[in-house]
Write a protein that binds this DNA or RNA. Structure first.
Lengths: 252, 252
DNA sequence: AATTGCCAACTGGTCGGACCAGTTTTTTCG
DNA sequence: CGAAAAAACTGGTCCGACCAGTTGGCAATT
């Protein structure tokens, strides 16, 4: 390992062990570089590494601060590169929706063909829950409905792929629910679309199911796109919200 | 945001969007710095950030390499349960083909819309190689052609998903090549289909490209199904065929 | 005295060049 | 031809300078 790696390691220890609280300021680059006996360039590389890991935040002219990370928020594997890419690159949302359009259409079609009675039961249950739940509740019911359909496709590959995208999918569903549901007419459109998908699958109409599902995903994408173009901030779903502004230090 | 942040962003984009596979080498620091118009110091800071996020790995004297992305969908290597399932249950082949039908259709469509001149060049190169190679050679050229198209879709999610299925995909392509190519008329059909896909993408006809691609995958599936129903043993493909180190076979 | 305005001293951000240290390729010579 | 030496890569580290935001205090003005 190079020196910069070692420095980033020592810095992290310093922060974690040293009891530096989130939001707390760490010494200036020049100070740290001198104290640790390395050049400022190397020190900066180490800082960038910690930055990449989300350990610190840096603000021009102010300094670097310990980020407020709860290391055990293992809820979703936030820190995965893809996850981060998604959070940082809004376009990725639409990329995902493009893929979902195909995959969910496929799943709905296969579900219409292959769903067993137990599958139908599960789908129905998820659908009911979707109807009854508060519109603004979290995205779980919505996702559950889609999930039930996917599993009814009886295609292990499809299930596996969609499962691999689950976390990101949850985010897009969350985004769509948060942004679209508040709009009265949109919520109705989405509900109608869900109903169409549901009925097509139950009626065993593969083509109709596929069309309904792809149309639904496309509708969500188009809607969010148009919302976004109207200036609405669509994608702002912070992975681990709150980010302790630097000025949170208590008055001395 | 500072320049180094922007650089790391662009780099990340370059890596995932460009479909750079894990393990692949990225250009040297001096090259990248020049190409992106920044100093080497800043370029290195950006690299360290990606390093901190686990996107790349760096080795002294050798270079920087794309790290294996995310464990979720990626890496269906041999010992994977799904891989095993596949070997044991031929039907999984058709499941995969079902999914491929959608995904490759999507990829071809997007490629027809978004391929850059460099993408076109790569696709053309892969296509040429596909025409010239011996029909019975391994499946690499065939897969390379499809891969080039997928990467031209400029949808990181799509690239990621297909990449995760790469190993299994290689097997299906291998299976199709081994079983279908020996049949004169089938080989011609497949070649014609490849040509249709190629021309549609080059001509920038998204719909035609999608249709050609889905039709192609469907044809492969249907053909193998019919072959199988005639009593041919279709799936007998050993799992660890190639993938061996450069020092191949070695028959003493 | 209170306010305003400005300047100096922080902070991080960027640059270029130089040199060291591994790795790979090319050249040279036995 | 083959092995050793040299050159041409690669990343790793350092220095010194300068740019760009931020902050606080000092001084001139009101």
């Amino acid at each position: 390992m190079g020196i910069s790696q070692e420095i980033s390691y020592r810095l992290e220890r310093l922060i974690l062990d040293g009891g530096l609280a989130p939001g707390q300021k760490i010494p200036s680059e020049r100070q740290l570089a001198t104290r640790l006996g390395v050049s400022r360039a190397i020190l900066r590389e180490a800082l960038h590494e910690l930055q990449g890991r989300g350990v610190i935040e840096t603000h021009h002219g102010k300094g670097s601060f310990v980020a407020s990370i709860v290391p055990s928020t293992a809820d979703l594997d936030d820190r995965s590169p893809l996850m981060h890419l998604f959070a940082g690159h809004p376009r990725t949302l639409y990329d995902l929706l493009e893929v979902r359009e195909q995959l969910e259409g496929q799943a709905a079609m296969l579900a219409a063909q292959r769903a067993t009675s137990m599958d139908r039961h599960r789908i129905t249950k998820a659908f009911r829950m979707l109807e009854s739940t508060d519109p603004m509740s979290n995205a779980k019911p919505d996702h559950g409905f889609h999930q039930a359909i996917v599993e009814a496709s009886h295609n292990p590959i499809l299930v596996h792929v969609l499962n691999g995208l689950k976390n990101m999918m949850l985010l897009t569903v969350q985004a769509s629910v948060a942004n679209l549901n508040p709009r009265e007419e949109m919520r109705h459109s989405i509900m109608r679309q869900h109903k169409q998908i549901y009925q097509a699958i139950m009626a065993g109409k593969p083509t109709a199911a596929r069309k309904a599902a792809t149309a639904h995903v496309r509708f969500v994408g188009d809607s969010m796109r148009s919302l976004e173009s109207q200036g609405a901030k669509v994608i702002r779903i912070s992975l681990n919200s709150e980010a302790a502004a630097p000025g949170t230090s208590a008055s001395p």
